[in-house]
Amino acid sequence: MKINVLAFGVAKEIFGSSLVSLELTNDATIYNLKYLLEQQYPRLKQLASYMVAVNNEYALPGDTIHERDEIAIIPPVSGG
């Protein structure tokens, strides 16, 4: 399945875009997504940490991704 990934903050600079498209297997997890992204964008691994959000909620590594989910890369937050 094809998914779109939103990027914010430093992740947007690492991707060179605020949105990237990826091809994932149908039962892919957050863990699989992070692995694939880190292969394509090794600078992700230099971040202090980063989370993935699915449909506006923080996701866990084992969560499954579905087609049409809204996926976002959340680098370390620094609001306030």
Binding site: F8, V10, A53, V77, S78, G79, G80
Partner: peptide
């Protein structure tokens, strides 16, 4: 807020 809200500053 500083730990969880997805806002970033440069």
């Amino acid at each position: 807020l500083k730990q969880t809200v997805p806002i970033w500053k440069k």
